[in-house]
């Protein structure tokens, strides 16, 4: 696993070196490899496909523009993009709160009947509502660790937190999710 990660990083560094020379082919390879991850993070953070594409595009353009400052031997393009995408989403969410008068829901919407039979679509809607109801950073913690398989350390780094604070954040996020989804999943 470590060898694979090292190999990936080595490939990332080589591709970034070519991108620094403005190699479009190398950039396309990086997009194919990592754009979906940035898009996934953004979609689950923001809950909107169009905005998620915008965030993915912005993160990858930053990668292109800052290729000349790339330091080989780091955590790799995937970790860099995940960090940038997460922070772009947090920025957008922060702006969204200031721009909108709507109150941000703190808890899962209880509108779908918990007693009703749960089909796939209903369960998805319930899950989306529960995840979106989480505070922004708790949501980011769940998305990075559960969906993107980040280690706690990597996720803490992506959110600019120390590990203890991140673990506390993650614990609160899981508890809130369990409470919100428990009834729905049964």
């Amino acid at each position: 696993m470590l060898a694979t990660a090292a190999l990936v990083n080595e490939d990332d560094d080589a591709l970034m070196a070519r991108v620094a020379l403005r190699d479009g082919v190398a950039f396309r390879k990086l997009i194919d490899a990592y754009a979906m991850r940035a898009h996934r993070i953004a979609y689950r953070m923001l809950g909107d496909a169009t905005e998620a594409e915008d965030v993915a595009q912005e993160a990858l353009l930053r990668l292109w523009n800052q290729a000349m400052k790339w330091h080989p031997g780091g955590a790799g393009v995937s970790a860099w993009l995940g960090r940038v995408a997460t922070n772009l989403c947090l920025d957008r969410l922060r702006r969204r709160k200031f721009a909108s008068d709507e109150e941000v829901p703190e808890r899962a919407d209880d509108a779908p009947g918990a007693d009703e039979a749960i089909d796939e679509d209903r369960l998805r809607a319930r899950t989306v509502a529960a995840v979106q109801a989480l505070p922004d950073r708790q949501r980011a913690a769940i998305i990075l660790t559960y969906y993107e398989d980040y280690s706690n350390m990597a996720a803490a780094g992506a959110l600019d937190m120390n590990i203890k604070a991140f673990e506390s954040l993650l614990l609160r996020a899981r508890t809130a999710l369990r409470t919100a989804l428990g009834g729905a999943a049964k």
């Binding site: 898009h39 996934r40 979609y43 998620a52 899950t127 969906y147 428990g182 729905a184 999943a185």
Partner: peptide
């Protein structure tokens, strides 16, 4: 239970 629910949050 939570994991099964989370898995339904797929991405287009």
């Amino acid at each position: 239970v939570t994991a099964r629910a989370l898995d339904h949050y797929n991405v287009p």
